[in-house]
């Protein structure tokens, strides 16, 4: 069993190395974010960017920590990741059967996710970039007003937690990006600037910039609560935190030539 898993991991590692991550170009534009640019619910402007079509897998992350051992769970500085970092892996350098190579990597801190993206000549997407790409369904760039789109997202919330133990490979959306919904939460670069307070009901409190209720209150569309829950999740985190259903994918500026 162990040998089989190790072989599998090695094979996946080889494939990951051979098969560089795929990015697609996303045009950007003006976008009605759930977190408006200002108090008047203005649209945000999103510059064109590239987004990884799939979340980073355990195999890819194992490859990364092998190449950059300072990010192994037994060597990482505690300030960069709490003790649950990659806890489900069999060891610091092997995956095991609770974290199959093709599953999305979870239990990674923001610092580690960011370092991975840098190693891939990329960065973490911003919240607005992520939200822009995730507004699409299979045929439309912005499907958010469709109840079916909402239902699909909420279905995941209602399913018992199987923390990251689902296969990557959901159907591609309008841009060719997979698994933005229904598989894992994903880190974004500006997760700690999303303006949602611990108490989401602070509404128009003068303390807003300190307690930051903006996210919940300025919701311009009551249907957006499905996305809002993701904002709430991200804003509950500190950069060294990890959870069993939180992974990531990377983005690139469109000018970056490979």
């Amino acid at each position: 069993m162990r040998i089989a898993v190790a072989l599998g991991a090695a094979l996946a590692l080889f494939m990951a190395a051979a098969d560089a991550a795929e990015y697609v170009a996303i045009g950007g534009g003006r976008f009605a974010s759930v977190l408006p640019a200002d108090a008047n619910a203005a649209d945000v402007a999103i510059a064109p960017f590239r987004l990884r079509t799939e979340p980073v897998t355990n195999a890819e992350f194992l490859d990364f920590v092998t190449a950059h051992p300072q990010w192994r769970r037994d060597r990482i500085a505690r300030v960069f990741a709490e003790q649950r970092y990659l806890e489900r892996w069999q060891s610091a350098t092997a995956l095991g059967d609770r974290t199959l190579p093709s599953w999305p990597v979870t239990q990674v801190s923001w610092f580690a996710a960011r370092a991975f993206c840098v190693s891939e000549n990329a960065r973490l997407p911003t919240w607005n970039e992520w939200e822009f790409a995730a507004a699409a369904d299979a045929t439309r760039a912005d499907a958010r007003s469709d109840p079916a789109w909402r239902e699909a997202i909420l279905g995941w919330y209602a399913r018992p937690s199987a923390s990251g133990s689902d296969e990557i490979g959901g159907s591609a959306n309008f841009y060719g990006v997979r698994d933005l919904h229904g598989l894992i939460w994903e880190w974004v670069d500006d997760f700690n600037a999303l303006l949602v307070a611990g108490d989401s009901r602070d509404q128009n409190d003068p303390d807003r910039l300190k307690f930051c209720g903006a996210g919940a209150l300025n919701l311009r569309d009551r249907e957006n609560y499905a996305v809002l829950m993701r904002v709430a999740m991200l804003s509950s985190l500190k950069a060294a935190d990890t959870t069993g259903s939180l992974g990531f994918r990377c983005a690139r500026d469109i000018e970056v030539k490979r």
Partner: peptide, 14 residues
């Protein structure tokens, strides 16, 4: 404030 809500916002595993 918040009856404790603002002081108890907790991510999974925390």
């Amino acid at each position: 404030p918040g009856g404790g809500a603002a002081s108890s916002f907790t991510a999974p595993g925390h």
